[in-house]
């Protein structure tokens, strides 16, 4: 690169000017010749080292890093014994970037119906997409998925899967609907919450997922 070459040039000129200074000094002060020579050699090698370092590893570009623990996608699939599935999806491909997550709700809930729910967490920046759900299940004691229903929406959820200590995990749930109503359903995945707990408010831990869906019961 051009700039690097300029720097090499600068080093050379610095060495040259220092050497010249030292030579001048030597002629004034012949008694100190030996020390001056040592200093001169020292300065020369030190500058040379810098100059050489200055032109190394400049043409290699760094490796790209894709966040390994990123969760880009949440899919909550709710299947009734008979009737249409409801699928709630949130996708946020740029992770912490400025693009907002995109939420889609396919289908609507029927009144007084029981649904079997399964949630899936994916990292879709990988190809093929990485299924984080498996990691969550493997570390069930360190995770919990919470389902929060807004006031007025006639939905209740119950956990059907548990960790080794019989505390709820929430990858699998049962969702029951009541009379027709509208509201929001929020899915929250917490890493290392207090277990057991009395719900989201007091569970603590670190939020890995928090996404809300506007849903209706018809």
């Amino acid at each position: 690169m051009i700039l690097v070459e300029t720097f090499q040039f600068n080093y050379n000129s610095i060495i040259k000017s220092i050497t010249m200074k030292l030579v001048q000094l030597n002629s004034i002060n012949p008694f100190k010749l030996k020390t001056m020579k040592t200093m001169k050699t020292g300065a020369f090698y030190a500058l040379l080292t810098l100059a050489m370092l200055g032109c190394s590893d400049d043409d290699t570009t760094p490796e790209v890093i894709n966040d390994e623990e990123l969760i880009t996608t949440v899919i909550l699939t709710l299947t009734p014994d008979s009737g249409d599935q409801v699928v709630l999806t949130t996708i946020d491909l740029d992770g912490d970037g400025p693009d907002e997550p995109v939420t889609t709700v396919v289908g609507s809930f029927s009144e007084n119906t029981q649904y079997q729910g399964a949630v899936q967490f994916l990292n879709e920046t990988e190809d093929p997409a990485e299924d984080i759900t498996q990691e969550v299940i493997e570390e069930a004691d360190e995770h919990q998925v919470f389902y929060t229903i807004s006031d007025g929406l006639n939905i209740t959820t119950t956990y059907v899967d548990f960790d080794d200590n019989d505390n709820p995990l929430g990858v699998q749930i049962t969702l029951s609907t009541g009379a027709a109503s509208e509201g929001s359903l929020t899915v929250t995945l917490r890493h290392e919450p207090v277990k057991p707990n009395d719900g989201l408010e007091s569970a603590g831990g670190e939020t890995d997922i928090s996404t809300s869906f506007d849903v209706s019961i018809q």
């Binding site: 969760i71 946020d92 912490d96 400025p98 997550p101 929250t188 939020t207 997922i209 996404t211």
Partner: peptide
């Protein structure tokens, strides 16, 4: 405030 899949930051 920025919205992400992990909530608000």
């Amino acid at each position: 405030i920025q919205q992400t899949i992990r909530g608000n930051f």
